[in-house]
Design a binder for these strands. Structure first.
Lengths: 139, 139
DNA sequence: CCGTATCCGGGCAGATACTG
DNA sequence: CAGTATCTGCCCGGATACGG
């Protein structure tokens, strides 16, 4: 099945479903970090992923675990040690995510440029014609 | 640059930036529809994309246009006609998105299964040990 | 037909405090 | 160390009404 395969595009809800996880930036970061480093402890992940709160990291890891993408191993020690790594299915996610990562690397500058141009045109229009701005810029 | 390329992983903010657009389900749907059909009018898109509100479609299209991924052509007619299509850059997005789409098709069932198993375990634990549930199931 | 403006309710994320 | 619980604010997205 592919995007261009009109037949049997299931109900798209599958895509939405998965995307809501993939699209979550923390999820992608976690998968990225685990795919590079293999196995990481909670606080290692927290340090590596810039800006994530404890709460969000916990939630993200729980969801990934629930979806069978990340495995969680608790070592009954004091102090506690919990290690995270990708499951086999999680590893297969690397490839499509890598594709996205590469695309980003190649096109991010173009996007930035496109935005600048767009914004300049808009501010020009705005000056000439007050009101008529799409949802007052964002929202 | 790739996920496994530790050097020069820029600041990851680029990835977050692009992901917040890719991760948006409406954006993906729009790109998907345009990549299949080539060119579509506003209401054609609205009909094709199940459940999108007028507001969200407008906002999504504006953002995609601003990022240089979608081009918008207005025909000065009555009633007005506006056509959307992918730009060259937008077309290059097809490939990574397709990869994601394919991955979804292959793994969605496994994810559903994993969730069921996880949830069953959790309800069991819950019964035995009230309290101690990760953020009371979601949030 | 193709939008824009405005109101509004729910959910998501940060901050904080607390445990085994 | 690795979480959990709770409070709070605010952003996002739907619904609605209107306009060129």
């Amino acid at each position: 099945m592919s995007l261009t395969d009109t037949s049997k595009h299931s109900n798209c809800s599958a895509m939405s479903d998965v995307l809501s996880r993939i699209g979550d930036k923390w999820s992608v970061m976690v998968v990225g970090m685990l795919s590079r480093n293999g196995t990481l402890r909670f606080n290692e992940l927290k340090r590596l992923i810039n800006g994530v709160s404890q709460r969000m990291l916990t939630l993200t890891l729980r969801n990934l675990e629930r979806d069978g993408l990340v495995s969680r191993t608790i070592y009954p020690e004091v102090p506690p040690r919990v290690e995270y790594s990708l499951t086999e299915m999680g590893k297969t996610l690397q490839e499509p995510i890598n594709a996205l990562w590469d695309w980003t690397a190649e096109n991010h500058h173009s996007i930035i440029d496109a935005r600048d141009i767009y914004d300049q045109r808009q501010t020009a229009v705005e000056a000439a014609e007050p009101r008529k701005i799409a949802y007052a810029r964002g929202q």
